[in-house]
């Protein structure tokens, strides 16, 4: 497989999203927001109640991570991706508000794949279990909401060349799908 390497910067416009294809190796530079299980429940609750969100999702990227505590003198602790499927049922409302990218690991539901297609978004897989390597790409970290959630709070991160792989592109092309077919052919 040929690997295409791309550099992208946030905010993630539709134009930028359309250039990305499943299987591309991408380095992201700019701003991303962290949110995992508990933060998603709060974000969705806020959307349902019509409340303002801690950040405007339009053209932004959410990173599913819950970092380890920050050592003195460090920007952040280890901060790799968590499994994305647990956020599947809480993803569409955010895509509706213009969220353009998600970083996590592992498969997504069919509903999320449809959502990614409909709202022209992209799903990136970061390398699970590479939390130390990813931590080095994070240059600033600020907790902006849900402080009481500890590791699950929403953080605004400034990142520099965070390595990810396009797992599902805006046409619904999925790197995981390809592999499943490959497996079937093999058997």
């Amino acid at each position: 497989m040929n690997v295409y390497r791309r550099e992208i910067t946030t905010p993630l416009t539709e134009e930028k999203v359309k250039q990305l294809k499943a299987g591309d190796f991408v380095y992201i530079t700019g701003t991303v927001y962290t949110a995992r299980d508990a933060a998603h429940q709060r974000l969705i609750g806020a959307i349902q109640r019509g409340e303002e969100l801690p950040f405007e999702p339009q053209n932004q990227i959410i990173y599913y991570t819950g970092p380890t505590p920050t050592r003195p003198g460090h920007v952040i602790g280890s901060a790799g991706p968590t499994s994305s499927y647990r956020m599947d049922e809480m993803t569409i409302p955010l895509l509706k508000l213009g969220l353009k990218g998600m970083i996590g690991k592992g498969v997504r539901s069919q509903a999320v794949i449809e959502g990614i297609k409909n709202y022209k978004a992209v799903y990136f897989a970061a390398i699970g279990g590479a939390g130390a390597l990813i931590s080095e790409c994070i240059k600033q970290s600020e907790t902006i909401a849900y402080m009481d959630l500890g590791t699950e709070a929403v953080r605004k991160l400034k990142i520099e060349r965070l390595p990810v792989i396009v797992a599902i592109d805006c046409c619904g092309g999925s790197l995981y799908e390809k592999e499943i077919q490959y497996k079937c052919n093999e058997n």
Binding site: H74, G77, S78, A79, T82, A130, G131, A132, S135, E136
Partner: peptide, 12 residues
């Protein structure tokens, strides 16, 4: 990096 920079291998 984990060993040299005092960062856990994984956040979990």
């Amino acid at each position: 990096i984990a060993r040299e920079r005092d960062l856990p291998l994984c956040q979990d």
